[in-house]
Design a protein around this nucleic acid. Structure first.
Lengths: 368, 368
DNA sequence: ATGAAAGCGCTAACAG
DNA sequence: CTGTTAGCGCTTTCAT
């Protein structure tokens, strides 16, 4: 036993292993039937006489036999596997989607290949390629690939995209624009006039979508928006951006995602800036823990797990009816407003009357 | 385009697909060599003349040919795949491990099969079985299976266990006892005399380990421990447990994991109980977001991603030298103490002298 | 309802 | 260095 700074190590000698994998022939022989019958017993039980079936199944059970999917795929052309690629497992957004995807795949008796592309387009490409021959189709979440690269993959892979659109691939989308609109309307209703947006990754499709929605909603609501970014979609980037936001003297900030929103909250707390009294913070994605961790975060929620399920659903559909064309499914977002995210009320002149609304205090600070 | 409460749906007609998968024969024919040569070109390039190699590779490239792992595994017996089973992807603990595992596997040119057992032993068993024939080995994280069931799996699968020990399987362990000891020593040093422990799942090996470590450390430090549980390892359980903890009038609480610790913090905040002024909270695992989300959480950190890497390392080692026996690797935990987790100082009589230490205020409240 | 035979894509001897 | 041959475990005609 070695003891080191990082832990300890132990070794044991081996026990024997019963490694012989039983093949279909073995089962056939022991059951007194041909391999073809055993095969049928597993794939088309209806074609086998009850009596024979029982016998075969019994022998198989005894020998702990399970058909080899790899071998089966050789003849059938179907692997029964599905690939899922995500840019970063460290971003809680993706495990949530993965969970739904995995569950739906299992219901359809499919296994899931997982790959983490580390936000790296090259790697993403390589990973999909590597999977390609072992899976029936691939779900790519928040792809960092360019349109042409995706088209390339599309030539020999059935693809479903999550948070991305490309001709020829089915897609699941979070309704970013709608979520942003809700956020802006919410902030406008609370009296905010000047709002910051902390942008996500440069090549992120979602980020473009969100900014697009942001601009039109902001115009419609008469809210001024100051944009920052691009930033990596991480907690640390949120901390960093928080200082820029403060310097911009806005009364509210919308972050590209919850991770960054948490970073903002953390940094604002460090600097003694009150949330929501001085600045309101809105996140995006509603990763479960963000809402748990702090009551001061308004967030745009998307049904992540459901998104994963739907994506796999689309993929399965696509595999079942290869000629049937692609589908796109949008998932609505929903702004989550919590008790402790409204600033104190104050009186505001609305047209000819004075109305009592939740008002951003930073404004009055600026005035004083 | 359909619009529904949850979103929208779109359909497109299909573009054509270039689905013909090129086989090794095709490449061989076009390169004017035998299939065996093509095979060698990919698996043992050294055995092929430079000139031929170039030609083969060129043709393969042009045809976008990649060898089929499934077919290859048929003859070689090795799949180049690794399975990873986790009890719940919703628990941030596991994605972190998964990330490391996935990265290490990729370095070794292995693909990863992922399965979520939903904390269900039956399902876990089934999933491992289903994977078994498609992978070279399986990493089971925090297995919920009994020892005999694991032994059963061990008969025909190479297993590596994370946070679990069983004869015949390599294992990676977080040094729970050490972490708990650090936590107790820390609390004792701050003057805590009465500490609550919120237990994890009933069948969790980690939970047993932590309780074991807890008892001995508590005894050594003269700290009284009140145990609660078992609880599901979730945020909500933490909220629930918080009330029990408060009723037990302790001055500190250690939670089975960070998720539960966050639940405790949330509930204490709801009830207006000060952390750490009235109760100190210690978590476990150091899932990245927990520490980010709140500055009031003392936590026992474990290098999660590294654990995943090491686990795969062990698995690969095992696969490379099948006869060489199992290994166990322990990963040390490290208590993370933050600025805002110490209660205010107060004077305490230590033997004959009076010492100034951080003191749990709840004690004095109880005294008043 | 069952069996015999051919072959899926690939590799592993064994010759040359 | 390269080709030939014989399967790996399974499914799938085509007979029976």
């Amino acid at each position: 036993m070695t003891v080191s700074a990082t832990g300890f190590t132990l070794c044991h000698v081996d026990a024997s292993r019963d490694d012989a994998v039983t093949s279909i022939r073995e089962v056939a022989r022991r059951a007194g039937v041909s391999p073809a019958t055993v095969s049928r017993a597993f794939s088309e039980p209806g074609l086998v006489r009850q009596e024979t079936l029982q016998r075969v199944l019994a022998v198989a059970e005894e020998l702990r036999y399970r058909p080899s999917r790899a071998a089966r795929s050789l003849t059938t052309g179907k692997t029964g596997n599905i690939g899922v690629v995500v840019p970063d497992l460290g971003n809680p957004f993706f495990p949530a989607i993965l969970k739904g995807a995995q569950a739906r795949a299992r219901e359809a008796d499919h296994s899931v290949f997982l790959a983490d592309s580390e936000e790296n387009p090259r790697l993403e490409m390589e990973l999909v390629r590597a999977m390609a021959r072992q899976v029936d189709g691939v779900l790519i979440c928040s792809s960092r690939l360019s349109e042409v690269e995706l088209q390339k993959l599309l030539r020999d892979t059935t693809l479903v995209l999550l948070n991305r659109r490309v001709a020829g691939a089915s897609a699941v989308q979070m309704d970013s624009a709608g979520g942003i609109r809700q956020a802006i309307e919410h902030l406008a209703a609370l009296g905010h006039k000047r709002v910051a947006f902390i942008g996500g990754p440069a090549h992120s499709w979602s980020n473009r979508e969100r900014r697009r929605g942001l601009r039109s909603s902001a115009r419609a609501q008469g809210v001024e928006v100051i944009e920052f970014g691009p930033f990596a979609p991480h907690f640390e980037a949120g901390q960093q951006a928080a200082d820029l936001v403060v310097a911009a003297s806005v009364t509210a900030v919308i972050a590209f995602n919850d991770l960054m929103a948490l970073g903002v909250l953390s940094r604002l707390a460090d600097r003694g800036i009150g949330v929501p009294e001085q600045i309101s913070v809105v996140g995006f994605d509603d990763i479960p823990m963000a809402s748990m961790a702090t009551p001061h975060l308004t967030t745009v929620a998307v049904p992540l797990e459901q998104a994963g399920r739907v994506a796999i659903e689309l993929l399965l559909e696509r595999l079942a009816h290869p000629g049937s064309g692609t589908h796109e499914q949008g998932l609505a977002s929903q702004l989550i407003v919590r008790a402790s995210t409204a600033p104190p009320f104050s009186d505001v002149r609305a047209g000819s009357r004075t109305v009592r609304v939740g008002a951003p205090q930073a404004t009055s600070v600026a005035e004083s």
